[in-house]
Every structure is written in structure tokens, then in C-alpha cells.
Design a protein around this nucleic acid. Structure first.
Lengths: 338, 338
DNA sequence: CTGAAAGCGCTTACAG
DNA sequence: CTGAAAGCGCTTACAG
């Protein structure tokens, strides 16, 4: 019994022989190019069907120098990615941005392999371009890819000083809006739980909050840090209350952080918004599942994925006049927590 | 200003010229083959560094007929995948199974594109093999891939009558164990909320429950259906109670279904396990977050992903004596709900 | 240890 | 409308 994979795949050459035409003609049929007689086309299609011919992509890529696939590179571990609704939305957006382009998506988890392997894969002609998301710190990856000639667009502003185009939510204005809202509603001792300081989202939302506070001549010393987790938010809220027990408002840099903060506040018997006002960021599904429902800064994550991908594909196609980077608007959604 | 992607990538030929050796020697260095003098190796490595040379994968694939990447094909929409912890665990397992193999993972969402595009991609020499998960109904995809000579291993038993190797949890024994547990603990009117009947998990767990009931000469007419969602579980539980108000035990084909059932039971003022015993399936994180905590049948999903991938890689490498299929054990975990 | 040459399976001008 | 030929950038026997 011969294992099925021993079977040698038919080549274009064999299709040509069976159809009684030249390789050129077969190639034209496969690529749907004009200038083929009905008769020849029919013969080729028949032969393709009979032989179950599938074009060899490697050969095709080698000559066309295109692969018809793009990569989504996630600078995170696989389990983090699959557990976070942020990535689900990014992925939806990426697929939406690719719709109709007849391209494949290759998903790569940067943290699951060594950098060189990833870089060689991306630069080795496997993909036509890459969307890179969730960069940490001053990751040199984007610059390396660009230097190798690969079209790259980032989701989120990079921290490294590179001129790689990116699409991001306007996090700074989002943080500013949150601070202004808390000020406008009469809060006096406003704190923030900032996100990670190795990511632009963390830095920019904090900078927005600081600017809002500065506008009103308020001090900005009530700052705690948290990663994007419930536990982190809970711990940061506790630290904040320990250092500044009279805090009466908090801007949390993400809804998931706000959830953690809510938990700590409940444990300490503090009412939201009566004792402490709380503003989140994201307007994720979490925001309306809490009690009280979260006032939060909305960002459109799916749109982030779509815009980034559309921008990348335009670049891959060689379109001109593309924006270096794009900032998508954020919007305050007022509910019950502030 | 020249866009960076205009830069022509250096070829092996140029490396050879700069290093003052032949293409053969460069190739040997790149592929870490023996029989290269220290001097030649150093010269080549220098040239590679200077030119920032990265081998062209398409050319390499064309001649070696290997791509060093495998596909994980998920027969679901992207958003479903990213929202479900099942896939997070499968992915972890797949990465664990690939560890040390220096291969890339290409993630493909079958439902996001037309079948032909997917098939051409997979059969066109882009990947060395495929793990296919979450097949629905009698999907012809696996048979097609195998016919095209692509090594394929499935996560989960396929419904179509094909001889494609698969790795699955022993769902039948799991269902049997659940039924026996309910019988042993004295339950008299035992129902089940079965999973989708277009998936083996749904069919096999139900079959196990039926067998357990038959062993004890019990009737098996208390059957409701649900998809893998909380809402589905809640609705199925309601339907079950409406048709058979005296039901005193339920085997739910998944923890997430059991969560929905719990909700309905609470709404109707029925106590678990006093009025109705409930057994779930999966032992996911959900099982211990409910009140009461779920008695459930544990399956090791990460191991499912790892075993499937290891089996695939062994086949790709041409190893012999591989098992046609593998069934991983399931285990009853007794907690508070039954 | 090294290199010249053939060939992987396609596409693409080019000539007819 | 069609085909012969060159070439994409590698690897792999083969000869030395």
C-alpha cells in the first residue's frame, strides 16, 4: 500500500502535454489571462481537472516575487493572544481589511520563537507584507523588516524611533478627555492607573491624563502602574488608596484594569461613583457587564485592524500618496461610574 | 528619497562573488553542511553580514520541496476562534508539539475564505502538513488534502468516512462515565444536553451517555441539543424542564453548556445538586468558577494539540509505524454539582 | 575542501 | 492565438 503522499504532484508541463498545448498556454489559463482560444482553454481545464493539478506556489513565487499572503505578527505569547478580546477584534479587522484581496493570512506569534527565525521567515519571501501588533519597548523588529524591503504597518505607535507607518487610536486625546470629564464633574483628587510604560498605549493615555490635569493646574502625583489584567488593576487601586486615601476619582488606562479597581473599591467599602469616580478605556464588552456600568473612552479596535491592513495592502500594491500614519478618534462614553 | 522596498534583495550569487567563493560553498555555509574550510566559512559569513543576505525561501522550497512550515486550519470564523479558550489551549499544544522543530505555524481560518482558495494554498506547496481542527459535518477538506499528497492530522474524529488520522479525547467513555456517576449516585430520571449533531464531540458524548443508560436499562428519551454557548445551554435546559419537569439529573456535553443550564435552574428555583445533579464536560476554567462548582469530565485539550502536532511532524519527517489515530483518556472530576 | 552544471516548476517577454 | 526559450534563486549530485 503506497502512502498517498508518495504520489508525485503533476506539473504544469504534464498538464500541457495532456491538453496538447504549450506550457505558456496552460499558464495563461491558470492565471486567467486573455488571448486563449475557447478550444485551448477547455482542453487545459479538462486536463487540470483530470490530473487534479494545483500550481506549485514556490515556483510561482520565485518568478513573480509575490506570495499573495501577508503576515499578522503578534509580539505576544499564543495563550495571551487567544485569551484577549483585543486580538479577536484586531483579527476581525484584519480579515475585513483583506476581504476581496484573495490573500492568505499567516499568523505569527513573535514570542514563541527566536527572533532570527521569525525575521528570516518574514524577510525570506514568504509574505508580501506584515501587520505587526502589540510591540513592546523598543523592539527592533519593524526597522529590520523595513530595512529588508518588506512592507510593514504597525498597529499602535512604536516606541523605537523609526519611521515605520502605524495606525493607532488617539490615546492621548482619550486620556485628556477622561481627565477633563473627571474635572468637569467636580472631582478634586484625581488619580490614574496607567498601563505598562513599555507600550505606547500606556505612555500616551497617561500623557493625556497629565495634560488634562495640567490644564486645570492640578498636581499629577497620584499615579499607579498596572499591566492589562484584573489582578494588576486591583493591586494598583490598593496601592493608590494606601498612598492617597482621599482620592475621589481614578482614570484607569483600560476597562480590564478598571474591573480590578472596582473589586478593590468594593472590598474597601467605597462606593462608585459616590465616593470615587472611575473612568475606563476601551469600551470593551466588559464595560457594560460591571455594576456600576463603566464610563469609558471608546476605541474602535476592529477598525484599527482594518485600517492597518488596508494601508498595508495599498503599500504592497505600490499605491502612492499613502499617509505615513493614521490616528483613529476616541470618544468618551458616559455611563454610571463617573 | 528611495523607498526602502525598492532595494533589490541580494542573492546567493552576490554573496558568493563578495566572499570570493562558489555558490555551492555559500549554500553549504547557509545550510550548515560539513566540508567547508574555516577560511571560506568566515568569508561567507562576513559577506552575508555585509549584504544582509536572507535566503529566498521560494527558491529553496522549489528545490527542496519542503517549506518548514505547517498549517493549523481552523474550520471556524476568526472571532469564534479568538473568543474560545478551547482554541487557546489547542494553540498552546500545537506550539508545544512544534517546539524545537524550527518550523513556522500558519494559521488559517477556513470560514473566512472560499474553500478553493484555502485548498490551493494548502496543496500548493506553502506548507509541509496541516493540523485541522473543529471540522463540521462531513467536510470534504481533509480527504482532498490527503488526496493531494499533503500530510494531515485532525484534532477530533471526522464525521466523513475518511481514513485521515486523528487525535481525539475519548468522548464516548467520558459520556459513559458521566452517566454511570449519575446512576451510581442514585439519580432516577437522567437527561442530557447533547452538543451539536454535526460534530463528533456532540455525537460521541451522547453515545456514551446512551450506553451508560442502556447498561442500567434506563430510557434515553430525555435529550436536548445545544451549541457550545451559555445561551444554548440555558435554552436547552428550559426545554428539558418543560418536557420533563421531574428530571433529577443532567449530563451537559460541555462546561459552557452546563453554565447555561445552571442559570436556568437558578431561575426556576431548582437547587443543584439537591433537586438536580449536573455533570459537565471539559474541566475548563469555568468549572471551578460556578456555584456550585461543576462535577465534570476532564479532557486535556493542550495535550490534544500537542499530540496531533507531534503525530503530524513525525509523518512529515517520514517516520514509520505511526498510529492511525490516537484517543486520549478522559477522567471524571467530582466536585459539588453531582 | 571546492566549483561547474543541471534542474526544481513556474512566468514572461518575444517572435510568429 | 500560440509556443520556444530564458530566467527566477536556490540545492544537489558529480567531478576534481
Amino acid at each position: 500500500m503506497t502512502p498517498p503522499d508518495e504520489r508525485v504532484a503533476p506539473t504544469l508541463e504534464e498538464v500541457a502535454r495532456v491538453a496538447g498545448v504549450s506550457r505558456s498556454t496552460v499558464s495563461r489559463v491558470i492565471n486567467d489571462l486573455p488571448g486563449v482560444s475557447k478550444r485551448a482553454r477547455a482542453a487545459v481545464e479538462q486536463a487540470i481537472g483530470d490530473l487534479r493539478y494545483v500550481p506549485n506556489q514556490a515556483a510561482r513565487n520565485l518568478v513573480t516575487r509575490r506570495t499573495n499572503s501577508i503576515a499578522l505578527v503578534v509580539s505576544e505569547h499564543g495563550d495571551r493572544v487567544f485569551g484577549d478580546p483585543f486580538f479577536a477584534k484586531i483579527l476581525r479587522g484584519v480579515y475585513a481589511g483583506m476581504a476581496g484581496s484573495r490573500r492568505q493570512l499567516v499568523l505569527l506569534m513573535a514570542q514563541e520563537q527566536d527572533d532570527q527565525t521569525l525575521e528570516n521567515y518574514l524577510c525570506g519571501g514568504h509574505v508580501d507584507g506584515a501587520v505587526v501588533v502589540s510591540l513592546h519597548g523598543r523592539d527592533p523588529l519593524p526597522a529590520r523588516l523595513v530595512a529588508a524591503g518588506l512592507p510593514v504597518v504597525l498597529v499602535g505607535r512604536p516606541l523605537a524611533e523609526v519611521t515605520v507607518p502605524y495606525v493607532d487610536s488617539d490615546n492621548l486625546t482619550g486620556g485628556l478627555t477622561a481627565a477633563r470629564h473627571l474635572l468637569r464633574t467636580g472631582r478634586q483628587r484625581i488619580a490614574t492607573i496607567a498601563g505598562p510604560d513599555d507600550m505606547a498605549v500606556g505612555i500616551d493615555r497617561l500623557a493625556g491624563w497629565r495634560r488634562g490635569m495640567a490644564e486645570a493646574d492640578r498636581r499629577t502625583d497620584r499615579v499607579a502602574r498596572s499591566d492589562f489584567s484584573v489582578e494588576g488593576g486591583a493591586a494598583a487601586m490598593a496601592a493608590l488608596l494606601d498612598a492617597h486615601p482621599d482620592t475621589d476619582a481614578v482614570f484607569a488606562a483600560a476597562d480590564i484594569i478598571a474591573i480590578g479597581a472596582l473589586r478593590t473599591l468594593a472590598e474597601r467599602g467605597l462606593r462608585v461613583p459616590e465616593d470615587i469616580a472611575l473612568v475606563g478605556f476601551d469600551d470593551s464588552v466588559l464595560a457594560t457587564s460591571t455594576a456600576p456600568r463603566l464610563t469609558t473612552v471608546r476605541q474602535d479596535v476592529e477598525e484599527l485592524g482594518r485600517t492597518t491592513t488596508a494601508r498595508l495592502l495599498a503599500q504592497v500594491k505600490g499605491e502612492g500618496g499613502l499617509p505615513a500614519s493614521v490616528l483613529l478618534p476616541t470618544e468618551l462614553v458616559i455611563r454610571d461610574s463617573a
